[in-house]
């Protein structure tokens, strides 16, 4: 079992961010976490890392991350790009070597980064910056990969490339997103979150009118694609 949580709760002062979350994630599963701003998605990732001390029972890769920091050796975390100090004069090579891992040229080849090593990270496009962060995370050979909004400011082609790469990763993956559509066919299960766990399962089980209303407080049309997956149609609201 990669993650096991029972009655997991976290509050920022008096403001509840997560309330009584109970769920299990198997080894090797690919999970997408969806919800509006302030739903607790990033908070959940930080609780799994042990950076925020949540209440309740929590086991990540067999460790309680709140007590045992060894679990961090087995986890890679890709933060939101907005949290980076992009003005620092750092080469791609320097960013990649920050985690004290050896450069893996196969991963760099796959992410088309080999010829970008001497370039400044701040001069790359958003898509390539994201590739660098993912490459850095993958070089650690993690058992659990956590990604926080990896598609923000990333064009469609790069989104596809990132999904392709993630599909080949031999690890449990939890990705926090706003738009599930680029990754829907690749994920095993979807977690709908709005402080509480609204639904957790396959797309056809999770994307239901009542669940979407609970999460987003507005009606979001749902359509079925050729492969039979239900997709939320964001941006086409019906009040």
């Amino acid at each position: 079992m990669a993650v096991e949580a029972k009655n997991l709760s976290y509050s920022y002062g008096k403001k509840k961010a997560l309330e009584n979350l109970s769920f299990k994630i198997d080894d090797g599963e690919f999970i997408a976490v969806l919800g509006p701003n302030g739903a607790g998605k990033t908070t959940l990732l930080k609780c799994l890392l042990g950076l925020l001390k949540a209440e309740g029972e929590l086991l990540v890769l067999g460790f309680d991350p709140r007590k045992d920091r060894r679990v961090l050796e087995r986890i890679s975390y890709v933060p939101q790009r907005s949290s980076l100090a992009l003005d620092l004069p750092l080469t791609v090579e320097k960013v990649l070597s920050m985690c004290d891992t050896e450069l893996d040229w196969e991963i760099l080849e796959q992410l088309e980064l080999k010829d970008k090593m001497k370039m400044l990270f701040r001069e790359l496009s958003g898509g390539y910056q994201q590739r660098v962060l993912i490459a850095r995370a993958l070089m650690k050979k993690p058992k659990l990969l956590l990604l926080d909004e990896p598609f923000n400011g990333v064009d469609l082609l790069t989104q596809e490339k990132i999904v392709e790469i993630l599909e080949d990763v031999n690890a449990t993956i939890i990705v926090v997103l706003h738009n599930i559509n680029p990754i829907l066919h690749a994920v095993d299960r979807i977690m709908l979150l709005n402080r509480e766990l609204i639904a957790f399962g396959r797309s056809n089980e999770v994307f239901r009118k009542e669940n979407m209303l609970k999460v987003y407080k507005i009606e979001i049309p749902l359509i079925v694609c050729e492969e039979g997956f239900i997709h939320p149609l964001y941006g086409d609201h019906h009040g």
């Binding site: 890709v78 949290s83 980076l84 100090a85 620092l88 920050m98 985690c99 004290d100």
Partner: peptide, 17 residues
Amino acid sequence: NKFIFFLFDPEGAKASG
């Protein structure tokens, strides 16, 4: 190395221990 990691990517640095 720790300073640079922390200054560039504080969240990632924390997650690395």
